[in-house]
Amino acid sequence: MYEFIKGSLEFVGPEYIVIENNGIGYQISTPNPFIFSSKIENNVIVYTYHYVREDVMALYGFETREEKRLFTKLLNVSGIGPKGALAILASGEVQQVVAAIENEDESFLVKFPGVGKKTARQMILDLKGKLQDIVPDYFPNLFNANQFTAQDIASNSAFEEAILALKALGYSDKEVKKITPELKKEQLSTDQYIKKALQRLLK
């Protein structure tokens, strides 16, 4: 809903910051609010994620889009909620987290607050190979070491975007998973993946 909020930084606390924009103060939970301390009363841009559930509605904010992307991916892992995802981002740099997941480094992941062996394993199962849209900016050599090409990374990113688009259209995880093996055989653009997927789904 909100891509980012730009405004004057009015408050920094242990759990959140407050940004004033057009007379409204937005309370935004961030991984480490105190990194903004030097910007009090200055204009800042915070990339936001609007979290809505039946019993809670909150804004989470990040310095970069890459942090925001990793946060949203962590939320898809069973056993990790917003507070857990924030703790992971606060305790480790984006490239460290991505590298640990790609290299299946459970011993590193369990160092984060609230992450035990079961959750660490779940992070690896759910996210390994699905973080290419984050890695190029933060850890460009990670996939070279694992023999990934730039074309592979672009294709995987397009595939992930296509899957998200299909789910947004209302297709279930079960329906999408059924056609995934066939889609992965080719390197296509996002639009091409979606068209091919729809052809299979509408048969």
Rank of each mutant, 00 (worst) to 15 (best):
F112Q: 14
L70N: 03
G92R: 13
E66A: 11
A87S: 15
P113V: 05
E67C: 05
A85E: 02
F112P: 07
G114A: 01
D105W: 01
E63W: 05
G114S: 07
G116C: 00
S78T: 15
V97R: 07
N103P: 03
G92T: 13
E102V: 05
S91W: 02
T72H: 00
L59G: 13
E104H: 07
L59I: 06
V115P: 03
E106L: 11
K73S: 12
G92C: 14
A100M: 10
G79A: 10
P82L: 06
S107K: 15
L75V: 09
L86T: 10
G84Q: 07
V110R: 14
S91K: 13
F108G: 04
K111V: 07
A99I: 03
G116V: 02
G61A: 06
E66W: 10
Q95N: 15
S107R: 14
F71T: 06
A99D: 01
F112C: 11
L74E: 05
V97G: 08
E106F: 00
L75S: 04
R69V: 05
P113E: 04
R65M: 12
G61Y: 00
G79D: 11
K117A: 08
E102W: 01
G84R: 09
A90P: 04
G61M: 02
K111C: 10
S107Q: 12
I80K: 06
N103Y: 01
G116K: 14
Y60L: 06
D105Q: 04
K73W: 05
N103L: 14
E93C: 07
S78W: 08
V115R: 01
E104F: 08
Q95F: 13
L86D: 05
R65L: 14
T64Q: 00
E66V: 13
R65P: 01
L89V: 05
V77D: 02
G114C: 02
S91Q: 09
L70Y: 05
Y60N: 06
T64E: 00
K73D: 02
A99Q: 11
F62I: 03
V98I: 15
K118S: 11
E67L: 06
T72D: 01
I101F: 01
S78E: 13
N103A: 12
L86Q: 09
P82K: 05
G61P: 03
L89D: 02
L86I: 13
I101S: 03
Q96D: 14
K118Q: 13
L75H: 06
S107N: 12
E93Y: 00
G84I: 11
A87W: 03
Q96C: 06
S78V: 11
L109Q: 05
T72K: 12
L59V: 02
A100N: 05
F71W: 06
Q96H: 13
